[in-house]
Design a protein around this nucleic acid. Structure first.
Lengths: 151, 151
DNA sequence: AGCGGTGGTAGTAAATTGAAACCACCGTGA
DNA sequence: TCACGGTGGTTTCAATTTACTACCACCGCT
């Protein structure tokens, strides 16, 4: 998909992430993976995406370390795609997309599919981001810093 | 961009969000907007995107209620694009993209641009999502529910 | 051996993107 | 006042990507 030299190598973590999964299908694949989808055909029917595109996306996601292509699971010698540790850390991203959509992409009275919180049994409440000490973070309390080296 | 009838109207909030801003440029535009970018040319130079594409994306984002096209701000009778309330609520999304990128899209020792937490003066720590009562949420503690109506 | 389901690839048409040219308007300075 | 550079676009056209439709190989079953 790209040669090894064609990257300006952005330095902005947002851009890096967007480069890997900043497209419609990749995000929906991740969503489905969290919902338990593992098999090629399952993704394909579920998303209605062309098979070659799905094939390409899965390969990209595997290459990016988000998915892992495992040889089996239910006996049949077929392949299946499961989230890696890095992939499972995208849960926050999917939840964020979901919560914004719930708040801003529906009309009142419209039907939607909620995510149920296993603890309460109710649709997941509006979540907030907090620091390790429990204090919430607000947009206007942050700003870009000087470039640093990754530890 | 689309006729009013071409929508299967997904019901999945993730898909709804992805439909609006599930593409590279839209996400980077939002990121820049949070960094204080307001003007067309500023976005254009900053992102290196073609002007017609930028124009189209800005129009889509304005149409989706994420950005607002205001007539002025610094005196000059030029236009500028600012985040709406709905747009400002995408802060969590940008932060999530950023944090995943920081954790998984850099080699050790590589340079990156951190987001500074105004409270601590240090790079923003790894954030966690918590319920209104302060308890954290985990991926395997949730599952899809039956369709419901928006209140 | 035949048959249906799964997991793809190949070929081609349609849509999207990207680069460059063009253009109107604003503000400044001579 | 009127030329000139900067801003904020639109238009045009080529190149890339996506989507759709075959097609194919393999597996498991009868």
């Amino acid at each position: 998909m790209e040669a090894t030299s064609t990257k300006p190598a952005t330095g902005c973590p947002v851009a890096r992430t967007v480069d890997v999964l900043g497209d419609k299908w990749s995000l929906l694949i991740i969503r489905d993976a969290f919902d338990g989808v593992r098999r090629f055909g399952q993704f394909q029917r579920n998303l209605g995406v062309a098979k070659n595109i799905l094939s390409a996306r899965l390969r990209t996601l595997v290459g990016a370390g988000v998915l892992l292509s495992e040889p089996a699971s239910d006996g049949s010698s077929y392949r299946e795609y499961v989230l890696t540790d890095a992939g499972r850390e995208l849960f926050d991203l999917i939840v964020t997309l979901r919560q914004w959509g719930e708040a801003h992409a529906f009309e009142p009275g419209e039907e939607y599919v909620p995510l149920i919180d296993g603890v309460t049994g109710e649709p997941l409440a509006k979540l907030t981001y907090v620091r390790p000490d429990g204090s919430p973070v607000r947009a206007d309390g942050t700003h870009l810093g000087e470039p640093r080296r990754m530890p």
